[in-house]
Amino acid sequence: MKEISLRVNGEERSAEIHEEMRLLDLLRDALHLTGTKEGCGEGECGACTVIMEGKTVNSCMVMAFQAEGKEIITIEGMATKDKLHPIQRAFLEKGAVQCGFCIPGMVLSAKVLLDENPIPTRDEIREGISGNLCRCTGYNKIVDAIETAAGYLNTGGDSNA
């Protein structure tokens, strides 16, 4: 057992971890951030995607101790108390969510994609979410949503404007 501290969704957190604990377990079991999902547990599906130091990682493939002192964003860090993140709003508006299991990972992959490339083409969007499997939607409405979100973010992030 070892105590580590890290920043999660802008807050200093600390947790007891053991050697073989994955970042996924740290987030879900120790910090109770259950928005991050476990699909395959072997780096294939992207359901466990979180953002670490500005890059997406599969949290099932990162050991908890590797997150020491790192900045992590999970799906819980996207919306504020009374306002969805523009990417989340676009997902709802475009009908991009079916069962929802892949969606936390999709939204976070979309965030990193749009942080790095604010005006992506549809092909670049497909590339950006190609590590996230979705069984339900056939991806097209997710691509629509990310295109729409790019528009919201480029106009100050407010779709109600």
Binding site: C40, E42, R126, S130, G131, L133, G138, Y139, I142
Partner: peptide
């Protein structure tokens, strides 16, 4: 019985 061998479409295939 795993996603490494049971391949489903990604956004790039669709």
């Amino acid at each position: 019985n795993r996603f490494s061998s049971y391949i489903i479409p990604t956004a790039l295939d669709m």
